[in-house]
């Protein structure tokens, strides 16, 4: 009887491990997000075009990752994207006139948000909006502009 008891316990553990693996595959790996253990404060920024920016894309300052994109929404009144940035609480002294731009790492790489500090004396707080933003560079638009400018010559 003891034998079959330990067998049953092992099978129970095995089934739990298998279920946990499936759960990890469906939540952590695939596109269903349930948990995010982000701590820190949130800033909003409006962009005309966010290109290929994704939730959890890095937010950098001087090339150092200081936060992550935590939410991407759409404001249907001004037709702009509203990006919520989650900034590490260690960096709580960003000036009010900090600007945010969407950059691409490498020619075809991941898109991320780069912050540049301004010179204001007041700091941004949780829920504040970054006023100065620059949209993502859409490669097709750029090529289009280049072709048009060539055609004019």
């Amino acid at each position: 009887m003891m034998q079959s008891r330990s067998v049953q316990i092992w099978v129970g553990l095995f089934v739990i491990a298998g279920m946990a693996a499936l759960l990890m595959l469906s939540i952590k790996v695939s596109n269903i997000r349930a948990f995010s253990n982000e701590q820190g404060y949130e800033l909003n920024a409006n962009f005309e075009n966010i290109g290929g920016l994704k939730v959890r894309s890095p937010v950098t300052m001087a090339g150092v990752v200081v936060g992550r994109v935590s939410k991407i929404g759409f404001d249907s009144e001004i037709y702009e994207a509203v990006v919520t940035l989650n900034i590490d609480p260690r960096y709580d002294n960003l000036p009010e006139d900090t600007s945010a731009s969407i950059f691409t790492s490498g020619l075809l790489g991941e898109q991320y948000i780069g912050l540049e500090a301004g010179g204001a004396e007041n700091y941004l707080h949780d829920g504040d909006r970054i006023q100065l933003t620059q949209s993502a560079i859409v490669l097709e638009k750029l090529i289009g502009q280049f072709l048009v400018s060539q055609a004019d010559k």
């Binding site: 695939s30 596109n31 959890r56 894309s57 890095p58 991320y112």
Partner: peptide, 18 residues
């Protein structure tokens, strides 16, 4: 790290792939 997971989550579909 974030790009590793976020790109994975963006491209892996629960029904099509998992």
């Amino acid at each position: 790290e974030g790009a590793f997971w976020s790109q994975m989550q963006a491209k892996v579909d629960l029904f099509d792939d998992v």
